[in-house]
């Protein structure tokens, strides 16, 4: 199988985000492989194990620094990497076009895996665009994947512990959710080996993608702060509970 994994180089979720001007963040923070994409890479590694002779190709769109995220994916099992390099901030419509062009130029995917969303833009949509452009079915928030020949069975998580099960044919696009697997973190030898694996860098311009017929542009960024003035509720547990019930009834008006 040719297994493509789309990954993204994102700021660490614990990083302090500082805003520069009105539409950019200070990128001088730790970046890493998007956590949901780790589940996608892990799943690719399992598929490869079950299908001897498979190849895993990690693909990303980003600045030169995104090479680090490809190395992380390779330490977790990807065989090689494709970096579509651009300094521009790409929206989802452009990113999907770039991913699709890079994949088509490289090979013929039997399956495309990725995280269900990135933790920076939180857009939740690029995988669907890739699927639509490749004419492949898409399943997101996968919590279980079984591939049997050309058939795939995917269990998806909805809220409240509910699930939905889909059947589809390969090739398809799968958005990994947290329930899909527990990523096996790379050992030091894995990390060393990943440094020697090949990464092909392709400039975004050289892919010659068509301009999308729409765009999404950040026009303002601001820290999300909620100014709250904490008030203490005192008394015995019974009195405290009574005050909470009173607040729910009369101030928040959420119970009657």
């Amino acid at each position: 199988m040719q297994i493509y994994v789309c990954v993204k180089h994102v700021p660490d979720s614990a990083a302090n985000i500082h805003i520069l001007g009105k539409d950019q963040i200070d990128e001088n923070v730790a970046f890493l492989l998007n956590p949901y994409d780790e589940h996608a890479v892990s799943e690719a590694a399992s598929l490869k194990k079950a299908n001897a002779g498979s190849e895993i190709i990690a693909v990303t769109v980003g600045k030169a620094d995104a090479d680090k995220t490809l190395r992380s994916a390779m330490a977790m099992g990807a065989d090689r990497g494709l970096l579509v390099e651009t300094d521009a901030a790409c929206d989802s419509m452009t990113t999907a076009r770039a991913l699709v062009a890079a994949i088509k130029r490289d090979g013929t995917p039997d399956i495309i895996l990725t995280g269900k969303e990135s933790i920076d833009a939180e857009g939740m949509q690029t995988l669907f665009r890739v699927g639509a452009m490749m004419d492949m079915p898409v399943v997101t928030n996968a919590a279980g994947l079984t591939v049997d020949g050309a058939n795939a069975t995917v269990v998806c998580e909805l809220s409240g512990g509910n699930t939905r099960t889909f059947e589809t044919n390969l090739p398809c696009v799968i958005g990994a959710g947290r329930g899909l697997n527990t990523p096996a973190y790379p050992t030091f030898p894995d990390v060393v080996k990943a440094r020697k694996k090949p990464v092909e860098t392709i400039s975004l311009d050289s892919l010659g993608i068509d301009a999308p017929k729409g765009s999404a542009k950040i026009v303002g960024l601001a820290p999300l702060v909620q100014n709250r003035t904490p008030k203490e509720i005192t008394g015995t547990p019974a009195e405290q509970a009574a005050q909470i019930v009173n607040i729910l009834k009369n101030e928040a008006k959420v119970i009657s």
Binding site: V219, L221, L224
Partner: peptide, 13 residues
């Protein structure tokens, strides 16, 4: 965006 640390205004065309 960014794990809820930032609010972004995004304009569509």
């Amino acid at each position: 965006q960014y794990s809820g640390k930032v609010v972004a205004d995004i304009q569509l065309t």
